[in-house]
Computed example of a mutant assay.
Amino acid sequence: MSKVCEVCGKAPVAGRSISHSHRVTNRWFRPNIQKVTIKDKNGRVRKANVCTKCMKAGKVERA
């Protein structure tokens, strides 16, 4: 499944985990992407990959 939100374009971001002893390892911050049924701009019902922040903010009209 795609890791990019189709509404806001949010995608994974690279970063670093730093332990208590300050050992540094690479990691990814991934958005919480869910496949939901929505109504698009043309009024058609389809499935889309949407992050939970967009769903909570009401940026998507769910079908």
Rank of each mutant, 00 (worst) to 15 (best):
Ser2Arg: 01
Ser2Glu: 10
Ser2Cys: 05
Val4Tyr: 01
Val4Met: 06
Cys5Gly: 10
Cys5Ile: 01
Glu6Ile: 01
Val7Gln: 03
Val7Phe: 03
Val7Arg: 00
Val7Pro: 03
Val7Asp: 06
Cys8His: 02
Cys8Pro: 03
Cys8Thr: 04
Gly9Ala: 01
Gly9Leu: 02
Gly9Glu: 10
Lys10Arg: 14
Lys10Met: 10
Lys10His: 08
Lys10Gly: 05
Lys10Pro: 04
Ala11Leu: 12
Ala11Tyr: 12
Ala11Arg: 08
Ala11Asn: 05
Pro12Phe: 06
Pro12His: 09
Val13Gly: 04
Ala14Met: 09
Ala14Ser: 13
Gly15Arg: 02
Gly15Cys: 09
Gly15Met: 06
Arg16Cys: 09
Arg16His: 12
Arg16Ser: 14
Ser17Asn: 15
Ile18Leu: 10
Ile18Gly: 07
Ile18Gln: 13
Ser19Ile: 13
Ser19Leu: 13
Ser19Met: 11
His20Asp: 11
His20Glu: 12
His20Ser: 14
Ser21Thr: 15
Ser21Phe: 06
His22Thr: 11
Arg23Thr: 10
Arg23Gly: 02
Val24Met: 09
Val24Tyr: 02
Thr25His: 09
Thr25Ser: 12
Thr25Trp: 07
Asn26Leu: 13
Asn26Pro: 01
Asn26Ala: 14
Asn26Ser: 12
Asn26Gln: 12
Arg27Lys: 15
Arg27Glu: 04
Arg27Tyr: 05
Arg27His: 09
Arg27Leu: 06
Trp28Met: 10
Phe29His: 11
Phe29Ile: 06
Arg30Ile: 14
Arg30Lys: 14
Arg30Phe: 08
Arg30Glu: 02
Arg30Asp: 01
Pro31Thr: 06
Pro31Met: 03
Pro31His: 03
Asn32Ala: 05
Asn32Lys: 14
Ile33Cys: 07
Ile33Gln: 04
Ile33Glu: 08
Gln34Leu: 08
Gln34Ser: 09
Gln34Trp: 05
Gln34His: 12
Lys35Arg: 13
Lys35Ile: 10
Lys35Gly: 03
Val36Ala: 03
Val36Phe: 03
Thr37Val: 10
Ile38Leu: 13
Ile38Pro: 02
Ile38Met: 14
Lys39Ile: 14
Lys39His: 08
Lys39Arg: 15
Lys39Glu: 11
Lys39Phe: 09
Asp40Leu: 14
Lys41Met: 04
Lys41Asn: 12
Lys41Glu: 15
Asn42Val: 02
Asn42Glu: 14
Asn42Leu: 08
Gly43Glu: 10
Gly43Trp: 13
Gly43Cys: 13
Gly43Gln: 10
Gly43Lys: 10
Gly43Val: 15
Arg44Cys: 12
Val45His: 04
Arg46Val: 08
Arg46Ile: 14
Arg46Thr: 05
Lys47Met: 05
Lys47Trp: 01
Lys47Ile: 02
Ala48Glu: 12
Ala48Gln: 12
Ala48Met: 12
Asn49Leu: 07
Asn49Val: 00
Asn49Tyr: 15
Val50Gly: 06
Cys51Tyr: 09
Thr52Leu: 08
Thr52Met: 11
Lys53Asp: 15
Lys53Ala: 10
Lys53Cys: 04
Lys53Val: 11
Cys54Lys: 01
Met55Phe: 02
Met55Gln: 11
Met55Asn: 06
Met55Tyr: 02
Met55Ser: 03
Met55Thr: 10
Met55Ala: 05
Lys56Val: 01
Lys56Met: 03
Ala57Pro: 00
Gly58Asp: 01
Gly58Cys: 04
